[in-house]
Nucleic acid binder design. Structure first.
Length: 466
RNA sequence: GGCCCGUUCGUCUAUCGGUUAGGACACCAGGUUUUCAACCUGGGAAGAGGGGUUCGACUCCCCUACGGGCUGCCA
């Protein structure tokens, strides 16, 4: 019997959920969901100065948009501070931690002196082995009594076996002088208490894993399976910054990328399953594994994101797509569709979704549906409606009055008109498109006519011919 | 400074000692076409550099370069 998998995502609420965090959450989610395990969410809000409820809300919204559902309640790390403190005191009792009365000033001075000597040493507290009877009545921190020799080996599913010399690690502080826990202690206690079996997180924590492992050992707890994944870089290979993509995932939503495409892209970024490129979340869950994660940081490629999004849009269920489109409109602060518009969108969705990579593009192609008469025309459309073309359109309307409004019938009529005027079908389609959509770029003229219907089509042609 | 991690086409990647180094996006050319999108065909494009180990190295080892991370009473 294997232990059920428990993963977690543990962001600190100091800002929006950025794309890298979103991917970390996604990996944890895929791993748990693909194995019938649990995916937990914990907000690391022990830094009271920088944590905000707004950031927490933004992170939750971001995860929801990505479709990453978590199990159980969201855990607040801050609220568990008493438990963290209790563990620190237990370590004290076990002799795996000690009270350190060194002040910040003393530590700073130690470091400054080391630096002045041109050397670099980890801080060694004079209180490590002090006799408790010599303890002053002063504020203290609780430090881990870390081994000073030997090495700590991290068995990482992504990075392999990583060995850290214990001498390079200091006795980290577990409990601050104000009694609050540090991150290092809090993560370990929480992951243990929450039953986390797999810690999948950014590789900026790889070194921390060694220190954390010492706490697990000190408490006699089972060490989780580590998987430190490389961070995402910007298109230029540099660390992600706001300039190029370190946007909140909500901004990607506002840019109109469908969540399924985003998930697919992010899953494939830094992870591979053979040659699989385009896949559903169900497939991703079935395939996702730690072995397939690469060791090098990946760069963001918006072109590929768009390509994948286009594929997901065109293969999406029409009703679901309409639903997500409406969510997009709301998220980007645009007016909602009227019921009539929504109905027409659904009717025209088959042709619309094949030509869009993002929701703005979909909306743009749907202009013929969303605009009401008189349809505004851009410059190119105006040009397409020259005198000759208007004349042709005029001769077309009476024929349409009696049409049965099936594609076959319309095809017969338009082909006949083109032939009568001695022009190719393309020459006829251009002004027709301009009249119907007000653009020279639109879905097929047949699709448009069938979607908006006979009366509206004729009315628009009359508008244009006038 | 110290320690740790990384480096295959422009980008994401496959390869797990023996391949003409494969796929995808992007790009270029051609085709199809009712504009756009899509689609079809073809093309250019890679093992950071240097040493080893080996019959044989993209794959294993070492060095260098470059990139990143950690080195906080931040997470």
């Amino acid at each position: 019997m294997n232990t059920p998998v428990v993963t977690r995502f543990a962001p600190s609420p100091t800002g929006y959920l950025h794309i890298g965090g979103g991917r970390t959450a996604l990996f944890n989610w895929l791993y748990a969901r693909g194995r019938g395990g649990k995916f937990l969410l914990r907000i690391e809000d022990t830094d009271r100065e920088r944590s905000t409820p707004e950031a927490t809300a933004a992170i939750l919204r971001g995860l929801e948009w990505l479709g990453l559902d978590w199990d159980g309640e969201v855990v607040s790390q801050f609220e568990r501070k008493d438990r963290h403190a209790a563990v620190a005191h237990e370590m004290l009792a076990r002799g795996t931690a000690y009270k350190c009365f060194s002040t910040k000033e003393e530590i700073d001075a130690f470091r400054a002196e080391a630096e002045a000597r041109g050397s670099y040493a980890v801080f060694q507290s004079p209180w490590r082995d002090a006799d408790p009877t010599t303890h002053p009545d002063a504020p203290f921190v609780i430090r881990m009594k870390a081994p000073r020799s030997g090495e700590t080996v991290i068995r990482d599913e992504v990075q392999g076996q990583v060995t850290i010399q214990n001498a390079t690690l200091d006795d980290m502080i577990c409990l601050r002088s104000d009694g609050t826990p540090t991150y290092m202690l809090a993560v370990v206690v929480d992951d243990h208490d929450m039953g986390v079996t797999h810690v999948i997180r950014g590789d900026d924590h790889l070194n921390n894993a060694a220190r954390q492992q010492m706490i697990y050992d000190a408490m006699g707890w089972d060490i989780p399976i580590w998987a430190h994944i490389p961070l995402i870089h910007g298109p230029d290979g540099k660390k992600l910054s706001k300039r190029h993509g370190a946007l909140g995932v909500e901004e990607y939503q506002a840019m109109g990328y469908p969540a399924a495409g985003m998930r697919n892209y992010l899953t494939r970024l830094g992870w591979a399953h053979g040659d699989a490129e385009f896949f559903t979340s169900a497939q991703a869950m079935a395939w996702f594994d730690l072995k397939g994660i690469g060791r090098a940081p990946a760069r963001l490629d918006f072109k590929k994101l768009e390509n994948l999004c286009g594929l997901h849009i065109s293969s999406a269920d029409n009703a679901a797509l309409l639903h997500e489109l409406q969510a997009y409109l709301a998220a980007s602060g645009r007016p909602a569709l009227t019921e009539a518009q929504a109905a027409l969108m659904l009717k025209g969705m088959n042709s619309l979704k094949e030509r869009a990579k993002t929701f703005p593009e979909l909306l743009d192609k749907a202009r013929y549906i969303l605009e009401s008469r008189p349809v505004g025309r851009d410059e190119a459309a105006e040009k397409a409606l020259d005198t000759v073309s208007r004349g042709i359109l005029k001769s077309l309307t009476p024929r349409l009055q009696t049409a049965s409004w099936t594609k076959e019938d319309l095809e017969a009529i338009l082909n006949a008109i083109a032939e009568e005027n001695g022009i190719g079908f393309g020459k006829l389609a251009a002004p027709l498109r301009a009249a119907l959509a007000g653009r020279t770029v639109s879905p097929s003229v047949y699709d448009m006519m069938l979607v908006i219907g006979q009366d509206e089509t004729i009315a628009r042609l009359e508008d244009a011919a006038a």
